[in-house]
């Protein structure tokens, strides 16, 4: 089994609007993949499809060699782009909740990581700052021992040193038996840890490739390739 995630020709329409257009993405073990595109390009719809919240009109998804079914969902650690935690819970209750809910959750690792992010586990989620909630969410998802990590915007609202920690956490989490698909608008911050990137526009993959390959072919950072691809303007890098 080469790929842990295979999305084949995914199609989806909402009314007349095409949101995914013959989308193909493959994620192999050990790879960190960046899914990059502007707002409304279909990234979150794709993620919702991987996690079974939305059904494709056509095409199929294979996770770890199996068609998507309730059991395969357990292999996926998903961090949606919006806060999904109960705000009335204390942080330590959230940790306990995760531990009960996910059999692959490492409670000690999560607690250590959350404390090292400077979060007081006796505080309620609603009393945390935006950035701290994000740090908490990322720490929780990366403390699962999943096969597939789907991470929607891990760096938003997070301070500089926190972002460094999250990038380190990402590298600590990835192994040959797991794969990650990450979206972000802060491309320059994280591009050095991506193996491959897919550029998505209006539900379609318009460019994909291995990062170092793209850099040497175009003499540009992934961030500036993004600028060029989506603004249709030539970009001269100094």
């Amino acid at each position: 089994m080469k790929y842990l995630v295979e999305a084949n020709n995914l199609e989806k329409k909402f009314g007349n609007q095409v949101v995914l257009d013959k989308l193909n993405i493959e994620a192999a073990g050990g790879k960190i993949i960046g899914l990059l595109g502007p707002n409304g390009s279909g990234k979150t719809v794709f993620f919702n499809m991987l996690t079974g919240f939305i059904q494709p009109d056509d095409g199929q998804i294979i996770i770890c060699g199996d068609k998507l079914k309730p059991q395969t969902k357990e292999k996926i650690a998903y961090m949606p782009d919006e806060n999904h935690l109960y705000s009335w819970m204390k942080v330590k209750d959230v940790i306990a909740f995760y531990s009960e809910f996910f059999s692959d959750f490492d409670i000690k690792l999560a607690t250590d990581r959350i404390i090292s992010m400077g979060i007081d586990i006796d505080k309620k989620v609603k009393s945390l700052s935006k950035g701290s909630i994000e740090k908490l969410r990322v720490s929780l998802v990366f403390s699962r021992n999943a096969s597939v990590y789907i991470i929607d915007e891990p760096l938003l609202n997070i301070d500089l040193l926190g972002r460094d920690k999250i990038i380190q956490m990402t590298l600590d989490t990835i192994n040959e038996q797991s794969t990650m698909i990450i979206t972000t608008q802060l491309i320059g911050e994280i591009e050095r840890i991506f193996d491959e990137v897919y550029f998505i526009d209006k539900g379609k993959i318009i460019l994909k490739g291995e990062c170092d390959h793209l850099r040497s072919n175009r003499g540009m950072s992934i961030e500036n390739i993004y600028r060029e691809v989506f603004s249709n303007e030539k970009f001269d890098e100094i």
């Binding site: 460094d164 320059g188 591009e191 050095r192 990062c211 170092d212 390959h213 850099r215 040497s216 003499g219 540009m220 950072s221 992934i222 961030e223 500036n224 890098e237």
Partner: peptide
């Protein structure tokens, strides 16, 4: 150690 990479050149090369 924090190394500042130049993102426009392949990282492996640097």
């Amino acid at each position: 150690m924090n190394i500042e990479f130049n993102n426009k050149e392949p990282i492996y090369h640097q």
